[in-house]
Simulated scan of single mutants.
Amino acid sequence: MKNKNILNSNLYTALRYLYYFLTTNLLFLLVNMLFFVVFFSVPLLVENVLIYSLALIPTGPALAALFFSMGVLVRQKSLVPLKDFFRGYKDNLKVSLVFWVIQLTLSVIVLVDAFYFYTKGSVLVAIIFALVFVLLAIFSMIGFPMLAIFEITVANIYRSAVVIMWRYFRKQLGNLLTIIAFAVIFYAFPSEMFLFFFSLIAFYIMRSNQTMFIDLESQFSQINGSYERGTHDD
């Protein structure tokens, strides 16, 4: 009876979630080790944008795995971190890689253009490119959670993202602002937040979008397929 009380206690639940966030976040960081090596060894300059872009390529499948894992945690209230992370990585590898390379390429182009026009004194044009970058960020914020839930092609990610942006713009904007808030906290407490930062953001987005995914599942069934990822046991 005492053991059952411990397993059902709020403290045990909190520690269990802490373990899930920590382990999944460390797996995400491990898969992105190439970027961190570049970040700490190559100056962050416009001239090195190609090096940074190449180092960021593995981040796409890693994000798909992270969102998949956090989606499982949101729905099932439990997680097998290593198994679920690499299942999400393997199942979404091809689509997430193509989607991410497109997003990364477009993002680099608009950021470089924004920097170029800003240095030339064309602040308004630079702001326009910066807003395009924000739009691309929102598309990524929609696309990776969708990859975690549905079997979907890259083309249909963009089609669905446009519909979601139109119908749920305030929700997605709220998610973006929350990510910015997390980033501010990370800046204030980098040592503590680094161990949980990415998994916490992914968990928040997956939890925030659950109602939206349920609403869209029937409407997008012909586009996204009837099979929902992460809801069935192997």
Results as ranks from 00 to 15, higher is better:
residue 31 V to I: 15
residue 168 Y to F: 14
residue 158 Y to F: 15
residue 170 R to N: 08
residue 74 V to K: 07
residue 96 S to H: 02
residue 109 I to T: 10
residue 23 T to M: 13
residue 167 R to V: 04
residue 153 T to S: 15
residue 109 I to V: 15
residue 172 Q to Y: 14
residue 195 L to A: 14
residue 54 L to Y: 08
residue 151 E to P: 00
residue 95 V to M: 03
residue 16 R to K: 15
residue 18 L to R: 04
residue 234 D to N: 09
residue 174 G to A: 11
residue 118 Y to D: 09
residue 83 K to R: 10
residue 112 V to S: 12
residue 67 F to L: 06
residue 74 V to H: 03
residue 41 S to R: 08
residue 159 R to M: 06
residue 36 F to G: 08
residue 86 F to K: 01
residue 216 L to T: 04
residue 93 L to V: 01
residue 173 L to G: 04
residue 91 D to E: 12
residue 114 A to I: 06
residue 149 I to C: 01
residue 74 V to L: 01
residue 63 L to C: 09
residue 5 N to M: 14
residue 223 I to T: 11
residue 176 L to I: 07
residue 109 I to N: 02
residue 93 L to N: 02
residue 138 I to N: 02
residue 5 N to C: 03
residue 148 A to S: 13
residue 62 A to V: 08
residue 71 G to F: 03
residue 142 I to S: 02
residue 134 V to G: 00
residue 78 S to I: 00
residue 115 F to A: 13
residue 220 F to G: 03
residue 225 G to N: 06
residue 190 P to S: 12
residue 14 A to Y: 11
residue 124 L to V: 13
residue 68 F to R: 05
residue 72 V to N: 04
residue 200 L to C: 14
residue 188 A to K: 15
residue 68 F to L: 05
residue 139 F to H: 00
residue 79 L to H: 01
residue 54 L to V: 15
residue 59 T to E: 10
residue 15 L to M: 15
residue 104 L to V: 03
residue 233 D to I: 11
residue 184 V to L: 15
residue 60 G to N: 07
residue 176 L to E: 02
residue 175 N to D: 12
residue 104 L to C: 04
residue 13 T to N: 13
residue 199 S to P: 09
residue 128 I to C: 08
residue 167 R to M: 09
residue 193 M to F: 15
residue 52 Y to V: 06
residue 98 V to G: 01
residue 158 Y to G: 03
residue 37 V to L: 14
residue 174 G to Q: 09
residue 38 V to F: 06
residue 218 S to E: 14
residue 28 F to K: 05
residue 32 N to S: 11
residue 136 L to F: 05
residue 180 I to C: 10
residue 14 A to M: 13
residue 216 L to C: 06
residue 167 R to Y: 05
residue 49 V to H: 07
residue 38 V to A: 11
residue 127 I to S: 10
residue 75 R to H: 09
residue 139 F to T: 05
residue 29 L to E: 05
residue 225 G to C: 08
residue 119 T to S: 14
residue 6 I to D: 09
residue 184 V to M: 13
residue 193 M to T: 14
residue 77 K to F: 03
residue 66 L to F: 07
residue 24 T to D: 07
residue 150 F to S: 02
residue 71 G to V: 04
residue 14 A to H: 07
residue 91 D to P: 00
residue 20 Y to C: 11
residue 91 D to F: 00
residue 218 S to N: 13
residue 27 L to S: 06
residue 147 L to H: 01
residue 44 L to S: 08
residue 206 M to D: 06
residue 206 M to K: 06
residue 101 V to W: 02
residue 190 P to Y: 12
residue 68 F to Y: 15
residue 84 D to E: 08
residue 59 T to F: 10
residue 55 A to F: 07
residue 50 L to T: 12
residue 33 M to H: 05
residue 17 Y to M: 10
